[in-house]
Design a protein around this nucleic acid. Structure first.
Lengths: 178, 178
DNA sequence: CTTTACGTTTAGAACGTTTTGAACGCAGAG
DNA sequence: CTCTGCGTTCAAAACGTTCTAAACGTAAAG
């Protein structure tokens, strides 16, 4: 294969690995995804292990993660016993999967804790001696700020996640293309 | 102190620790930030170590990180030799700091690699034998998609980061408040 | 029924990260 | 000048995570 093609693939795979790590996934997941994304044909577990020089076990586990996140799909090859995978190449779909399955969950969890806290504080607010009342008011204010913040984050995330048809990806790509 | 206030503070601090870990910071940073955010007075390193039951060394290092990220500021107490810190309570400022200093950098790095790749492929595109030309075209297409995606992400991030005055935070808080 | 070719699971090794406590350096107080 | 109280740095230890290679399970092939 032409050395430039190979070099480009390698740096892209490495870059996606780095990125995956940055976003809280394992680097191997990113490299697997990159390898699949740049391969015209679906690849088997052995192909991937060979390609990235990692153990079969690692490929197996990480591919299952990729599948769960909707970043890769299994491809059935008739007459084949091996499993073959291809990357989900719709990047918006991938991002939506991640945001809805992880960031949104995290924000909602935070919100639950904060709502609960506000309620607790409001409940005792009036029965406190002066010095503690001040502290309670202060705490309440700060927690209310946090809550507002997360509420907005939640709204933004939900809007984005539910916007399946609002964006025409090809359209955007055309606008951005040189 | 009233047990409910204490309980609320504890769960909030724990929650912020969790969140910090989720966003790629250390949990200790999140807990330190939470402790400062909920304290009406500025706190010293010893206060924080005592509060969170961690070593002074850890507090020292993590507070320096918090400072670098603009999440906490040193407060000068006259007649005091100790360092005192308070949290940056403008959450939007915190987020902007993080997005501009970290996520944006990461996206730009990815974009550089991708631009380079596109150039490399375009340069050799025409001189390839048929079979390799197909592969080059395929690779180019995929990499161009990645690039479009990151370009859009970059635009979105920059817009948000530079929107210092577009949002009136108090206004938003009022809208969201019960 | 046995063998083969695969994917998954798992125990242990390797690795990286975080935490700690001690050593250190520095500055102000006595 | 010495002592004390601080923050920082650092090496070692504790810890958690990730990787691998081997064992295992399973199903198809012979």
């Amino acid at each position: 294969m032409h050395e430039n093609i190979e070099a480009v693939q390698e740096s892209t795979v490495a870059g996606l690995g780095r990125l995956a790590g940055f976003f809280g996934f394992s680097e191997v997941m990113g490299r697997l995804y990159g390898t699949l994304l740049l391969s015209p044909e679906a690849l088997s577990l052995d192909d991937l292990a060979e390609d990235l020089q990692i153990s079969k076990g690692s490929v197996s586990m990480n591919m299952r993660s990729l599948e769960r996140w909707g970043m890769a799909k299994e491809v059935w090859m008739r007459g084949e016993r091996k499993k073959y995978y291809m990357a989900e190449s719709q990047l918006w779909t991938v991002i939506r999967n991640v945001l809805s399955g992880r960031e949104l969950r995290e924000v909602q969890l935070a919100l639950e804790v904060l709502e609960e806290s506000v309620d607790k504080l409001r409940a005792v607010e009036d029965e406190l001696p002066a010095d503690e009342s001040d502290l309670a008011k202060y705490t309440l204010r700060r927690i209310a700020d946090l809550r507002s913040f997360f509420q907005l984050a939640q709204m933004a995330l939900e809007t984005f996640v539910d916007s399946r048809d609002e964006f025409d990806e090809d359209e955007i790509n055309r606008l951005l293309a040189r």
